[in-house]
Design a protein around this nucleic acid. Structure first.
Length: 613
DNA sequence: CTTAGGG
DNA sequence: CCCTAAG
């Protein structure tokens, strides 16, 4: 009897055709007959409990089989079989346990994938797949109602398929006498050998319990396609089970629930799914393989840390960090980040399909269909290939000051940054520039110039600025102070510098910095737009963001300075030496600001405290 | 649009 | 300096 209950494989073939489907007859279409399917013979008691079949009932079933076997329709198309009951008068009940695989091969799998049902729902749906005939169930509606009752009852018990400590059925039903007979290794091997070799059936989990660590690792490998060195049985089992669920296309939006459902205790009130969810969230650390504590216990010698692995697969709402997150607000990955990720993907892809090409030194322009395509060399996987030159980052429209510069044709400063856009704007008189730019296009390699020179030039320039620039000067020049200075002083320098003035870069002059500091002290840190408006009224460049950035840099510099004071001067970056006095101001302001924020924070605390009192 | 912050 | 996310 016990054997019957746990392992009915001998009857499997016979039961196959007479089992009743409550939905989706395709679940048990004939093509699965060859597949090993485990059957458990149980009876649904009036109150919904599952009671193992007695010997009598089994005999009855056998009779039934003999009588009905040939009469039974062979599960025609779905819908017609809905609610079909093999023998209404029979007290015997069949509970058919489809293998998970069979279940998900069928159309239901798609349904689940589409609906993205929650794990709880998923589980229920899963059990819907079970046959649940009863004499009372005359119509499918009735059947359904009772089924729900059954389900709630069922779910109240330990979930069938994922009990961690052995056989599932015995826990699902209060029939201890039979429970120990249900778990034979034989079953294990049986149920794991489904047509999709790496899958496990409902009973497959039982087999997991009986597998050795090595076997579990093997199974893991088969399931996930990679090796594991984890020696923790629990973990392996959990992983495999989870992997199987995932591989069924069910997106687990809240894996914890799954976890817990699968492994955790079953005393929750499963009828109230919301409560259940909360409960499980709270209890998620108990005996779930995903809980941090548990993970800690797992073997140390695994190559991929369990945490990593887990997070990898369920990248999501794992409350590992608990409540105390950094104060900084969380940001979702930026587009740029995503872009870069995909970029690397592209790269990896193209690495796989390397186009062999002759060794060519640099990029060149090749014409295709009348159009000239600038290409560049990319060395991938050891060989070099030629790819069209496209900048990954979409360049934004030139900033205002660009157009403003149009008023100063003799100072084409920054057009060089965008070769593809400035072609037509070329000023013939500035051949140097032209050549520079064109060569820039041809090589299409971005800045190949030496940074040192650039810095050096910047230094010179800023020195000039310091000497020459008076506030009035700046204000009156209207558009671009640097330009005017340059214009007035070193034309040659300007041209040379032009080569290095890629991007819209304009060095901050000391006077600007002073203005900035002053503005910050007046209007406060963070009031960038105000500072811009009031302290930099005539600067078409220097957006509030620029100002903010500069402030950030100043801050950094100032603190770096204090540090370098302690451990010797590390400051050799040819960048403009900002007078220590200003740096001091910066630091003061920064302190003030942090003080202010501190005060406001404490105020807030006080306020909230007052609210309590 | 402004601010914060990463690149 | 550029870009983007968040308010």
């Amino acid at each position: 009897m016990g054997a019957m209950f746990g392992n009915v494989e001998d009857y499997g073939e016979m039961f196959q055709d007479i089992s009743v489907e409550t939905r989706g007859a395709s679940l048990s279409t004939r093509n699965q007959i060859g597949n090993p399917v485990l059957y458990k013979l149980v009876r649904v008691a009036k109150d919904g409990r599952l009671v193992p079949a007695t010997d009598e009932e089994i005999l009855e079933v056998e009779d039934l089989l003999e009588n009905k076997e040939n009469d039974m329709p062979i599960l025609p198309d779905p819908g017609q079989t809905e609610g079909y009951i093999p023998d209404e008068g029979s007290p015997s009940q069949f509970l058919r346990l489809e293998s998970l695989e069979g279940l998900f091969q069928s159309e239901t799998a798609e349904a689940y994938t589409e609906k993205l049902i929650s794990p709880l729902e998923f589980k229920e749906e899963l059990f819907h797949g079970f046959t649940l005939p009863d004499t009372k169930f005359q119509s499918s509606n009735e059947l359904y109602g009772n089924e729900e009752q059954f389900l709630s009852e069922f779910l109240l018990q330990e979930p069938i398929c994922y009990s961690s400590n052995g056989c599932s059925m015995n826990q699902s039903m209060d029939v201890s006498p039979y429970s120990n007979a249900t778990c034979s290794p034989k079953e294990a091997s049986l149920s794991t050998a489904a047509s999709k070799p790496d899958s496990f059936g409902v009973s497959g989990d039982m087999s997991l319990d009986n597998l050795s660590i090595k076997e579990l690792q093997e199974t893991f490998r088969a399931t996930f396609g990679r090796e594991t060195t984890v020696k923790d049985k629990q973990w392996l089992k959990g992983r495999i089970t989870m992997g199987l669920i995932n591989s069924c296309g069910v997106i687990t939006t809240s894996p914890t629930i799954v976890d817990n459902k699968l492994v955790g205790g079953g005393q929750d009130n499963y009828n109230d799914s919301k409560n259940t969810v909360d409960e499980e969230r709270r209890a998620s650390c108990k005996d779930t393989p995903s809980s941090p504590d548990c993970i800690k216990e797992h073997s140390n010698d695994c190559v991929n840390s369990p945490v990593e692995t887990f997070v990898d697969h369920y990248s999501g709402n794992e409350d590992f960090e608990g409540e105390h997150r950094p104060v900084k607000r969380a940001r979702k990955p930026t587009r740029r980040f995503i872009e870069e990720i995909s970029k690397t993907d592209e790269k990896q892809q193209s690495e796989e399909s390397v186009i062999p090409s002759k060794d060519q030194k640099s990029s060149q322009a090749i014409s295709s269909g009348g159009r000239v395509v600038v290409t560049r060399m990319v060395s991938l996987a050891g060989s070099r290939i030629q790819v069209p030159y496209v900048s990954h980052v979409r360049r934004s429209r030139p900033r205002e000051n660009m157009t403003a510069l149009g008023d100063f044709p003799s100072i084409p400063w920054e057009m060089d940054a965008m070769p593809e856009e400035s072609d037509l704007n070329l000023v013939p008189s500035l051949l140097n520039n032209d050549l520079n730019r064109v060569s820039g296009v041809k090589s299409a390699s971005g800045p190949a110039k030496k940074e040192d020179d650039k810095d050096h030039l910047n230094l010179i320039l800023t020195e000039v600025d310091q000497d020459m620039m008076e506030p009035e000067h700046l204000d009156s020049s209207g558009d671009s102070s640097d330009d005017s200075v340059d214009n007035n002083n070193h034309v040659g320098l300007r041209i040379t510098q032009n080569a290095f003035r890629r991007k819209h870069h304009r060095s901050w002059t000391l006077s600007e910095v002073k203005k900035l500091v002053e503005g910050v002290s007046k209007y406060g840190v963070g009031k960038w737009s105000v500072i811009k408006r009031l302290s930099f009224p005539s600067y078409s460049h220097r957006s509030p963001v620029d100002i903010k950035d500069k402030w950030r840099n100043l801050l950094r510099a100032s603190f770096a300075h204090t540090h370098s004071d302690r451990m010797g001067s590390l400051k050799k970056h040819g960048s403009m030496a900002i007078p220590s006095q200003i740096m001091l101001q910066v630091r003061e302001l920064a302190q003030k600001k942090s003080l202010v924020s501190l005060v406001s924070k404490t105020r807030m605390v006080k306020k909230s405290r007052n609210r309590f009192l």
